[in-house]
Design a protein around this nucleic acid. Structure first.
Lengths: 226, 226
DNA sequence: AAGTCATTTAACGATTTCTTAATACTACGA
DNA sequence: TCGTAGTATTAAGAAATCGTTAAATGACTT
């Protein structure tokens, strides 16, 4: 199952959140649908049969938990995954939510990278998609959940930026990532850092993991490959 | 679907941007149309039915988002892709763009290489275009993503210019590329290098890949053929 | 407040890649 | 056969790009 085939329905009454999530998920290649209330969500879900529904807990009228219950009652949606969006403070929903049939929680405020990997995680768990399952290439295993890279079984913990850079490179082994692409995805499109910064991080990775995993394509970028 | 068949409409009130984008996209072989305001854009879009519209968000009178909405209301343009051009600073979570039906965002300032690959990405995602599929002719496979040429299964890595030259020749097997054409597409229309430079690169390619792939047509140019 | 760690920058060196220039070669027509 | 036009070859210098180090910054800890 490819990302392109995956439909995600986002339900939230705040327009900012809808757009933010929508943008980031579309950018990853998912098919994204949105709506801003529970009733519409149920109708839309029946119609498009998304694999995953991101559901805000706090909504006027029909709240997330009740919406979730009703979706769970739909036989045609039995395979649909539901993840709740919650503010950090509201942890009461934790209990009520799982009861209603939620598969995961995502806390606001939501950071793009976290969102993406979380969603990949949810989808992987239930669809046995290998979208970005823990890569395992040439003795290197990247565990996105634990934030650790295993080199021939030995855990190597990496700081955030190094980990994210490694994660990006390993997300498509062999593919050459342009420096611009790396900056955009690891640092974020709006952050401006010098080109040498990437080099330094690459160097640290090579130092910790060995020289043979990351290849330089001069004038183009870097790739993870054997 | 070939690049030559793809029409792109660029809408921006700044003339510099129009020219910059237009130049770079034409160079890639797309059919490019421009206009500098929203109203005209809608009319032009109905007329030429472009596959992709690049739309500046910030425009006087009819802004990008409103223009997008109106285009989305046109039944005859239902398959048209819309990508917004935004300044780095305008945080995407604040933009009402996706709601209006945008398919992607491209941040200014725009770098040519990023633009090109981004657009190829957008088009590929939605048109299943084979814009940069891997050529495979007579035992030679050119993998643009991995930046590698496989010769009978064995990877041969090429420096940037050599790779781009090879990619160009392989993009239309059999077609003779004039020296002028090669300079324009590989080096860029504004770069001035001597004619011998091409020869040298051709020689390096023949050295690495074998003598039988690239043929010289005296007084005309080179072609990739068996 | 001192210390640690992650991140970024700056400076310089090292390397690769690109370009040129000079010369050799080849095919073809006079 | 000679001359010409165009391409091939080679080596060497120039330019671009990357690697490396050390040091500055800033957040967080002790």
């Amino acid at each position: 199952m490819n990302k392109e085939d995956i439909k995600i329905l986002i339900v939230d009454d705040e327009n900012d959140i809808l757009e933010f999530l929508s943008y980031n998920l579309k950018r990853e290649g998912y098919q994204v649908f949105v709506c801003d209330n529970g009733r519409e969500a149920i109708a839309k879900a029946k119609d498009i049969k998304p694999q995953l529904i991101l559901l805000d807990v706090m909504m006027p009228e029909l709240d997330g938990i009740e919406t979730c219950r009703q979706i769970r009652n739909e036989k045609t949606l039995s395979d649909t995954l539901i993840a709740f969006l919650t503010a950090r403070s509201e942890d009461y929903s934790q209990i009520a939510g799982f009861d209603a049939g939620a598969d995961d929680y995502i806390h606001k405020p939501i950071k793009p990278r976290v969102l993406i990997s979380r969603i990949a995680g949810v989808l992987r768990r239930f669809l046995s998609s290998d979208a970005d399952a823990n890569a395992d290439i040439g003795g290197l295993v990247l565990d996105r959940e634990k934030f650790i890279v295993f080199k021939e079984g030995n855990p190597v913990s990496l700081p955030k930026k190094e980990f994210e850079l490694m994660a990006l490179l390993m997300s498509k082994p062999g593919k050459v990532f342009l420096r611009e692409e790396i900056l955009d995805k690891v640092w974020g499109g709006d952050v401006v850092v010098g080109d040498r910064t990437i080099d330094v991080h690459i160097r640290k990775l090579r130092e910790k993991l060995g020289e043979n995993y990351i290849k330089t394509i001069k004038g183009v970028g870097y790739k993870f490959d054997l």
